[in-house]
Amino acid sequence: MTQVTCVVCEGQVTLPEGAMEGEILLCGDCGTELELVRLDPPAVEEAPQVQEDWGE
């Protein structure tokens, strides 16, 4: 079970099976959306905030 440290609260976030670079993870401790920017070793950054024209 691979884990990565939240860049906001330093909580441990578990990577889902088959995780891919660019995927969004949710920190269970602080609720921050994290972008998985690297897989090996895993690293995350705060995901960009939703913009006005995001969506379908």
Binding site: G18, M20, E21, G22, E23, I24, E35, A47, P48
Partner: peptide
């Protein structure tokens, strides 16, 4: 092509 990887792009 994506800028934020959603479940849809993985599917």
């Amino acid at each position: 092509l994506f800028t934020r990887l959603r479940q849809e792009e993985k599917l």
